[in-house]
């Protein structure tokens, strides 16, 4: 008994408070370490890239290396812009979304409706594996399927097929997770009104989970926006604006790679990266906002 009293009366408060403080500041320092890369990246992009950002940058096509060299040697701004890349990226994202969103949502509905069944489990696992496939491999596959056999040459279509395969598992997963969060009672309410099954899904469950589906789609888009490797093997790149899906097209990340390989275009690397980063960041913030609103 006395021993316990003695233990109780020991005063460790000084040491404990010190430990507490160390822990607290440790957490702050490590959190700063985590956020510092993004701050460093954004500041670097802004500092190096803002000079090239102008209206021309958005609506002109890329200059050739000679024009750029002249401008750089005269100490002027590099003329032209990356409109061919912006248009190409938009074109391929729209095409990829048109392929991946309907298939992804329908697959997600299938998984939700068949919880625990063999085919659904198999599909879910395969979709997860698909998410882990390196993007360059998807590029190779799309090269084999589309470039060689469908468009007989590098094309926007081939690029968007590889991007669509990348998007697909994300949409499947987010659709299933979203639908799972909708209470079963809502489905019963609609069925009890004599509503046919397909309308219950399309007019009750999908609208109820709409913001969840949208979040998944936006995250999927922001993921494929920056993909470069599969596009090198499929869309190839182009110095003109092209809306023909059977012809090669450019994309913002492809242009960044091209600028990197051309010593005269260095300044354009930063401004293109800044634009790409800004789009991805905005998409991420928007989808986070939508997701937060749901809760």
């Amino acid at each position: 008994m006395e021993a316990i009293q003695a233990l109780k009366n020991q005063d460790h408060s000084g040491r404990r408070q010190l430990k507490d403080k160390l822990f607290f500041y440790g957490i702050i320092v490590l959190s700063l370490v985590t956020i510092s890369p993004i701050i460093l990246i954004i500041s670097k992009l802004v500092v190096e890239g803002y000079r090239q950002i102008s209206l021309d940058f958005l609506i002109q096509t890329t200059p050739d290396t000679f024009e750029a060299m002249t401008a750089v040697s005269n100490g002027e701004k590099i003329p032209g812009g990356i409109a061919n890349g912006i248009v190409g990226t938009l074109l391929m994202v729209v095409l990829a979304s048109a392929m991946a969103i309907p298939i992804g949502i329908l697959t997600g509905i299938f998984l939700y409706e068949n919880q625990g069944k063999f085919m659904a489990n198999l599909t879910r696992n395969i979709s997860d594996i698909l998410q882990g496939i390196p993007s360059i491999v998807l590029g190779l596959i799309s090269y084999l399927w589309v470039v060689k056999h469908v468009t007989s040459g590098f094309s926007a279509l081939a690029g968007s097929v590889s991007l669509a395969i990348m998007m697909l598992p994300m949409i499947v997963r987010s659709t299933e997770e979203t639908l799972k969060m909708i209470p079963q009672t809502l489905k019963e309410a609609a069925l009890a009104l004599g509503v046919p099954y397909h309308k219950v899904i399309l007019r009750v469950l999908v609208p109820t989970g709409f913001s969840g589906l949208l979040t998944g789609i936006l995250l999927g888009i922001s993921r494929i926006l920056g993909e470069t490797a599969p596009l090198l093997l499929t869309a190839l790149g182009s110095s003109v604006i092209s809306l023909d899906i059977t012809k090669p097209t450019s994309a913002i990340p492809l242009l960044i790679w091209e600028f990197y390989n051309d010593p005269n275009m260095v300044d354009l690397i930063w401004s293109s990266s800044l634009l790409l980063m800004a789009i991805v960041l905005i998409l991420n913030i928007v989808s986070k906002q939508i997701a937060a609103k749901r809760k």
């Binding site: 009672t185 019963e188 009890a192």
Partner: peptide, 18 residues
């Protein structure tokens, strides 16, 4: 589907369409 239009149902927890 036809039957349920003749037989309304009300559930344990209120479940209006959100």
């Amino acid at each position: 589907i036809k039957l349920r239009r003749h037989m309304g149902m009300v559930f344990q927890r209120p479940n209006p369409f959100p």
